[in-house]
Amino acid sequence: MVEPLETALARVRAGVLDDETLVRALASGRRKGQDRPAWKRVELRYVDLKAGRRLQVTRYDDTQAHTTNHDDPAAALDALLAEPFGNWHVDTATETIQVRVTKSGDAAVGVQARSGPAPVREHDRSKARLLAEDDPVLRELGISDAHGRVKPTRRAKYRQIEEFVRELAAALDDAGDRLRPTADRPLQVVDLGCGNAYLTFAAHAWLTRVRGIPTRVVGVDVKEQSRRHNTEVARRLGVADEVGFVVGGIDDVVLEVRPDVVLALHACDTATDDALARAVDWDATLVLAAPCCHHDVSRQLRDAEAPAPHPMLLRDGILRERFADTLTDALRAGLLRTRGYRVDVVEFVGSEHTPRNTLIRAVAAGTDRDRARAEVTGLSEAWHVRPRLAELLDR
């Protein structure tokens, strides 16, 4: 429903200031035609300190988080409500409120009943895990032991899962009411190149049991062995009706239902381009891709003449490879913008197999496509490269 922005923000204010029921609130994006807010996004929750309950506000800029605790929640919240955020998402113990500011300056508001874990009030953020250490998925995958403690040798994998789920949460909140899953039409997620499906199962567990979102997940991998192994894990977890696996390549897999969310994590070289192109073909609302290696553009740079005054960037192999990483992902982000996606390239923890720690997070939200085309063309021509994703999207 659409209502005056003032009314919608009053609804948000009431939900956030109820310290007994608030689970979490998030502000993100910017309003059409207005300056950017002071922060990329802001998260709010209540914490219990020795001095009493406080509103904890975590503000994110391009590189880090800044956390403060406030004994006057109303004053802290009113300052944030005055910022030109384009989206507000509020989870309480009983409902989810989503507010998106429209082009006209009104608010599109969605309210859904919800049920989930009780609000977490511990001040120590390490206790506020998105997936608890004793989660059945983590035990079944061998990350946690029988007592529900993460094994010392699997700490890196657990951290990867936590950071992935955190980025998925940010993307889901940013999408707002562009995604409206129901019991009859669950959220459709595909994980391209899922391997052993650690993140596939983690995504399903968090979406269904923490966020309470009806979800159907399909993992895709070229290995039949992976399909059999992952299908057995799904059976033991009791989620085989909601988490399935198929054998296929990224560029030729056929899905029964068009996916809303496409995941492609640590796909090597141009496999990431294949995944991004499939996401565009499917008109997916959310895309999360963590590229692995970037050989394609690096090979092209080896034979290219760098534009003045930048030849030194290509002179040494190690610098050329690192520059190729940056150039490749910048062009991928730009190409997604030419197809109407709002794109953030953020830091993502690397797996034990690769030091790559970049995540491309895209939301189908409308962008200045002409500007994006001009930027992609200018960058490609300046460095004499033709990214694989451009070829795939032009087919």
Rank of each mutant, 00 (worst) to 15 (best):
T272C: 07
E224C: 07
T231M: 06
L276D: 05
E256I: 10
V280K: 03
R228C: 14
D221K: 01
R228D: 15
H229G: 06
A202P: 03
C194R: 01
I250D: 05
D274H: 03
T200R: 01
T231P: 04
F201C: 09
D191G: 05
A203C: 12
G212R: 01
H229N: 08
V246S: 11
D273A: 08
G219L: 10
D281Q: 08
R258P: 10
V222G: 06
D281K: 08
G219W: 00
L237W: 07
L237H: 15
V243F: 06
L276W: 01
N196H: 12
R209H: 12
T272A: 13
V190E: 01
L265N: 07
T231V: 12
L199A: 11
D251S: 13
L199W: 11
L237R: 11
G219R: 00
S226Q: 09
T270A: 09
S226C: 11
R216G: 09
G244R: 13
R236C: 14
L255R: 02
Q225R: 10
V261F: 01
Y198N: 03
D252G: 11
G244T: 15
F245P: 08
D221L: 08
P259A: 10
V246K: 05
V253E: 09
P214Q: 04
R258A: 14
T215K: 02
A234P: 02
G219V: 11
D241H: 03
R236N: 13
D283S: 12
V246Y: 03
W206Q: 00
F201I: 05
T272F: 05
D283Y: 00
G244D: 09
W206K: 00
H229F: 10
D251G: 10
R227I: 13
H266G: 08
V222Q: 14
V190R: 01
D269W: 02
D241T: 13
D274Q: 08
L192Q: 07
D269T: 08
R209S: 04
V261R: 00
E232H: 10
P259G: 07
G193D: 03
V222F: 03
V217H: 05
E224M: 13
R209C: 00
D221H: 01
G212H: 04
D281A: 15
T231N: 00
R211G: 00
C268W: 03
L276T: 07
Q225G: 13
A202V: 15
F245Y: 14
Y198E: 05
A197G: 15
R209F: 04
W206P: 00
L265A: 14
V253N: 04
V253Q: 02
V222H: 11
